[in-house]
């Protein structure tokens, strides 16, 4: 339950309310994590928050987090400046099935800040290009200025066997891309459902709609993974807050196969 001391090495603005922090360890701590895992980040005297790791899993000297300001605690996090310290516990949780997906096509479906926990998957697939088939990234955000990692999205799109599809809910007239919900992108993806593993992260309603649409399109529920979110205070299954039916999101998840959780998704106020 003791955070280790890490230092902010880089802060970059992704969108008006979202920042990426790169942290390096101060006391001989190490990076290293599985895509989809999260850390508990502690701001001295303020509080602790579960934040997904958004960097490259191959990078061992640092840990990268993309944080959206949604309240006082996240605001305190993104207000850290270079050289300031943060407490880090973790990494925790079950990550994305990057090993099970080996030899298959990978579909990444992200909504809003949900691209952050999926970026390590994209890095991993691109780092091990021969181990995977096609990579399709379907990404929806609220508006063009809310799209994360825009430069990288463009870079990824230029790579062989990578298809990047983006859409926004509303666009200004200068926006030349797609407008519409993220499920409207599936019509354009070039994938065979039987050999595809899908990894989905975004608001819960969006994931529900995506899961239904993808299973309708022939993807097996067991090949479809969602990353769930609930209140978390400890990250290790002690505090009880993240319980969701029989599951502790922190230690049983946050990533779950859809086949295991589909009935729970329809339970209101579970």
């Amino acid at each position: 339950m003791m955070p280790g001391p890490w230092q902010v090495r880089r802060v970059s603005k992704e969108t008006p309310d979202t920042f990426t922090l790169v942290l390096e360890p101060l006391n001989g701590g190490r990076g290293g994590f599985r895509p989809g895992q999260f850390s508990m980040l502690w701001v001295f005297g303020v509080g602790e928050l579960p934040i997904s790791i958004s960097g490259d899993p191959a990078e061992e000297k640092s840990l990268t987090y993309t944080v959206r300001s949604v309240g006082p605690a996240t605001q305190a996090l993104i207000s850290r400046s270079v050289g300031q310290e943060l407490g880090v516990r973790g990494p925790f949780g079950a990550g994305w099935p990057v090993d099970q997906a080996r030899g298959r096509d990978v579909l990444v479906v992200a909504g809003g800040i949900g691209l952050a926990p999926l970026r390590p998957v994209i890095y991993h697939v691109l780092d091990h290009r021969k181990d995977y088939g096609r990579l399709v990234i379907a990404y929806g955000a609220r508006s063009p200025r809310d799209l994360l990692y825009r430069k990288e999205l463009a870079q990824w799109a230029r790579q062989k066997d990578v298809q990047v599809l983006t859409t926004v809910d509303y666009g200004g007239v200068s926006w030349r891309g797609r407008v519409g919900v993220v499920t409207s992108l599936f019509r354009f993806m070039r994938l065979q459902p039987a050999r595809t593993t899908a990894m989905v992260c975004g608001p819960e309603i969006m994931m529900r709609l995506v899961a239904r649409e993808l299973t309708t399109r022939g993807l097996a529920a067991g090949d479809l993974y969602l990353s769930m979110e609930r209140n978390m205070k400890c990250g290790v299954g002690f505090c009880g807050h993240c319980q969701w039916g029989p599951h502790f999101i922190c230690k049983d998840g946050p990533v779950f196969p859809y086949s295991r959780i589909a009935p729970l998704l329809d339970r209101y106020e579970l």
């Binding site: 859409t167 509303y170 666009g171 200004g172 007239v173 926006w175 030349r176 891309g177 797609r178 407008v179 519409g180 019509r187």
Partner: peptide
């Protein structure tokens, strides 16, 4: 190609509410 479906609310910039394309 791609067509934007727009609405032009008063006192605001036009907003694209949908796009349609090939197919």
């Amino acid at each position: 190609g791609r067509i934007a479906v727009e609405i032009n609310p008063p006192q605001r910039k036009p907003i694209i509410v949908d796009t349609v394309g090939e197919g």
